[in-house]
Simulated assay, not measured.
Amino acid sequence: MLVLGIETSCDETAVGIVEDRFTLRANVIASQVDLHAPYGGVVPEVAARAHLEALLPTIDHALVEAGCGLSDMDAIAVTSGPGLIGALLVGVSAAKGLALAHDKPLVGVNHLRAHVEVAQLEFGALEPPLAALVVSGGHTSIVAMGADGRFRQLGATIDDAAGEAFDKIARFIGLGYPGGPEIDRLARQGDPAAIDFPRAMLHDDSYDMSLSGLKTAVIRYLRKLEAAGQEPDLADVAASFQEAIVDVQVVKTLRAARDEGLERVVLAGGVAANSRLRARFADACEREGLGLVVPSIPLCTDNGAMVAASGANLLAAGTVADLDLGVDPNLPLAG
């Protein structure tokens, strides 16, 4: 069974091909980073136009890499949400056209679910029940995946997503876009204990998180130094800021896993590429005796392989879409 997956939810035009649910045949990404870097963030209209230009060449590239043609596909899978509405429409429209022209089933994929399920390409079947932290530029959620494969939300950020916070602070201190990798690189030169930034909601009874106050605290700290004529150690700022985010995510996720009796944790999403987050989760899960599943970095960021993998699971379960498949920019993971 071959499934082609199309991902255009934000600023990466990506196509993947997966065989029999667990074997990756192709994973091609046309990055838009250079297009959005001058703006310090993703411009939705620019992203949608770039998807239009890049999608068909990216599909062709993936087919060549996989050594097959569209006629060999058993289904066309596509991200239908959440994401930027214009960007999503480009991918869904293309997938509909391919499915109709080649008489193939169409599968609509939840972008967040795909971030979790891409791990099966490296670790095999995920074997729920398990806990997952799905953390990216637009989403930060702790969920439980039941034995029936359905997700239940346990907690989420009540304001900024982690990736959003990374981008905002990176921009404020003059780093490049995207901010997450830049903060990660700079933080390796700093002391994560140098500045005691706040960890909002760390000890409350919920699994929810709040990062807006942390972002404000960093900005106030820097402005206070500026007013006093002092130069900040930006490496220490980056390391301490990053540590505060990581602390909250590790503590909340592991507490949720313990309380729910879940013995495995999946770390998923673009921010899961952060080296400090990966290291802290590895240490914490080892101490707690929990299994940890973390995809390799190329499979953490937005990619077509994750859409193909999730689409293959849906196809195997008999879940396909009609050609009237719509997009939902706010599609939830739970449910």
Results as ranks from 00 to 15, higher is better:
46 V>Y: 00
46 V>I: 15
47 A>W: 10
48 A>Y: 00
48 A>C: 03
48 A>E: 00
49 R>M: 12
50 A>L: 09
51 H>K: 06
51 H>M: 11
51 H>N: 09
51 H>W: 05
51 H>G: 08
51 H>E: 07
53 E>W: 12
53 E>M: 13
53 E>G: 03
53 E>T: 15
53 E>V: 15
54 A>D: 13
54 A>I: 03
54 A>G: 02
55 L>N: 02
55 L>G: 00
55 L>H: 07
56 L>R: 09
56 L>H: 08
57 P>V: 14
57 P>H: 09
57 P>A: 10
58 T>N: 05
59 I>V: 15
60 D>G: 15
60 D>V: 03
60 D>A: 09
60 D>N: 12
60 D>Q: 12
61 H>L: 14
61 H>E: 13
61 H>R: 14
61 H>S: 13
62 A>T: 01
63 L>Y: 04
63 L>T: 03
64 V>L: 08
64 V>G: 02
65 E>Y: 01
65 E>S: 10
66 A>Y: 01
67 G>N: 06
68 C>Y: 05
68 C>K: 01
68 C>G: 01
68 C>F: 06
68 C>T: 15
68 C>R: 10
69 G>K: 08
69 G>I: 07
70 L>A: 07
70 L>W: 08
71 S>C: 10
71 S>K: 10
71 S>Q: 13
71 S>P: 01
71 S>G: 12
73 M>I: 08
73 M>Q: 05
73 M>G: 03
74 D>I: 05
74 D>T: 06
76 I>N: 01
76 I>S: 01
77 A>L: 06
77 A>G: 04
77 A>R: 00
78 V>W: 05
78 V>Y: 05
79 T>W: 03
79 T>I: 03
79 T>F: 02
80 S>G: 00
81 G>W: 09
81 G>C: 10
81 G>K: 04
81 G>A: 04
82 P>N: 07
82 P>W: 07
82 P>Y: 14
83 G>E: 06
83 G>V: 09
84 L>Q: 02
84 L>E: 13
84 L>Y: 10
84 L>C: 11
85 I>S: 14
86 G>Y: 08
86 G>P: 08
86 G>D: 13
86 G>I: 08
87 A>V: 07
87 A>C: 14
87 A>R: 04
88 L>T: 10
88 L>W: 11
88 L>K: 06
88 L>G: 08
89 L>M: 15
89 L>Y: 12
89 L>A: 15
89 L>V: 15
90 V>K: 05
90 V>I: 15
90 V>L: 09
91 G>E: 07
91 G>I: 13
91 G>N: 09
92 V>K: 12
92 V>E: 07
92 V>H: 12
92 V>T: 15
93 S>Q: 13
94 A>V: 15
94 A>N: 00
94 A>F: 02
94 A>K: 04
94 A>C: 15
94 A>H: 04
